[in-house]
């Protein structure tokens, strides 16, 4: 099995995530793009796990998923407070701190 297609796919996913973070305004969407990046990593981890013939990568993937879930908890909480204060979930509106 060649790992290349999988890695290329994961790289593409990662890139999409990156681009999404940069281009999307809505905090929720931005956050989803970050999740996409994490999942791209998961794909790579699992692929390498398979290629290397050990389970470390798969275990890692699980960890990443758990951590991503935790991140969601914290992230959504923060986004919620911001949304409630500002009536907007656009990341560009929160720009009082600058210079």
């Amino acid at each position: 099995m060649s790992v290349t297609p999988f890695i290329v796919l994961s790289a593409i996913l990662f890139t999409i995530g990156c681009v999404g973070v940069l281009t999307r305004r809505n905090a929720i969407v931005v956050f989803m793009c970050v999740e996409l990046m994490l999942n791209a990593s998961n794909l790579a981890l699992v692929t390498f796990s398979r290629a290397n013939g050990n389970l470390d990568g798969q275990i890692a993937a699980f960890f990443v998923m758990v951590v991503a879930a935790a991140e969601v908890v914290v992230g959504l909480a923060i986004i919620m407070t911001i949304f409630r204060s500002r009536r907007s979930a656009s990341v560009d509106d929160a720009s009082l701190l600058k210079y």
């Binding site: 990662f14 970050v34 994490l38 791209a40 990593s41 790579a44 692929t47 290629a51 890692a60 951590v67």
Partner: peptide, 14 residues
């Protein structure tokens, strides 16, 4: 940045 870290982790693992 965590995203980068994790992806880096995957590559090094690879």
């Amino acid at each position: 940045s965590s995203g980068f870290f994790v992806y880096g982790m995957a590559l090094v693992y690879g």
